[in-house]
Design a protein around this nucleic acid. Sequence first.
DNA 1: TCGATTCCGTACATCGAGTTCAATAACTTT
DNA 2: AAAGTTATTGAACTCGATGTACGGAATCGA
Lengths: 200, 200
Amino acid sequence: MADKKEDRRIQRTRSMLHEALMDLIVEKGYAAITIQDLIDRANIGRSTFYAHFTDKEELLLDNINQLKAFLVEQIDKRTAADRTEAVRFEFSLALLQHVQSHKLMYRATVGKPSGTIVVHHIQQMIAELARDEITDRLPFEGTAFIPRDVVVEFAVNTLVTLVNWWMRGNTHHSAIEVDQMFHQLILSGIKQQREHTLTE
Amino acid sequence: MADKKEDRRIQRTRSMLHEALMDLIVEKGYAAITIQDLIDRANIGRSTFYAHFTDKEELLLDNINQLKAFLVEQIDKRTAADRTEAVRFEFSLALLQHVQSHKLMYRATVGKPSGTIVVHHIQQMIAELARDEITDRLPFEGTAFIPRDVVVEFAVNTLVTLVNWWMRGNTHHSAIEVDQMFHQLILSGIKQQREHTLTE
DNA sequence: TCGATTCCGTACATCGAGTTCAATAACTTT
DNA sequence: AAAGTTATTGAACTCGATGTACGGAATCGA
């Protein structure tokens, strides 16, 4: 922390661009967004954009890094409060709650061709979170048939799949319910469904 | 069947374009391919391209439909020969074998930003195959906590995840091994790893 | 206030998408 | 094999978006 304060103009420019990106994703989908759209919406000059980012993809990555910082904060907050036991897969609930409060953006992104790149980068980011959390909680490396790398990606992909389904007309489920589905799927697969019911 | 024979010129044009697409995906990745690249490689005129497809994406979809037809054929062949028992998730092995014989293309596609759209469409296609096969083999709808839609997407996504991992430096595994991992993951999740070992 | 940095905005070069059209080539049918 | 149909060609053109350049204006930190 304690990054030397950045010029206010820089902060303003970047934050305007981030907002513009989010808005435009909702309106026309990521793929259709042009640089012109972004600078018009953010109300900044063309050359100013290129002074900060080379791409709209680079802008996106910057945005996703912010999200990552936010998620880490959420996770740390929760694990600090709840010391009862080894906590598992905290990243899932943190993400799901973020998704819930940004329905429109995820709706316009997940599952649609125009949003695949966005999802791809979010997935990468979540995988980083997951790797840290999973690596030392599942101590069956070595004898395992399924390599650890696969476990991480498997879990992340399952989560994204659920978000996909959730945002496509099933928003009446709560983040906690979806989180439960997630844990069942990655731990037990699709078998033994009957043992699990909503305790709500 | 018995579509009235199509003009040979049409067949030729489309097949040249299909080949060009595959080659170029290997060489520069899907996203970077321009129409100009395609028509140069296929050696056809510009206006001819637009007489057949509006997009490179439409060309891609046409390609994937061909792949689907091929996979269905493989699946039918296998299930016809092996009548012993209810066969489950045949689509996975069929796809994995196709992947194995097109390593270069999948390597250049799966897991890379430039290939996300391609993967997305393949995933959609596999989901169609999976839906048919899964729907009547897992009769726990109704009481289940996990909705059927989710099961289908979960399975497909898991398969894609494995392909991703497989193509990234683990090609020494056989299609059958990866297929076994797939079945374990979707059926039992990441628990009970020790019960499963390679029987070769 | 002052010096440094950022932003502006216009202009410009470049590239790729997609359309048009008349001439030509290739195919199918009889 | 001839006739009629259909596909392909290639060049020219419009359009929109990308990315760069640069001098002057605005805003910052101190």
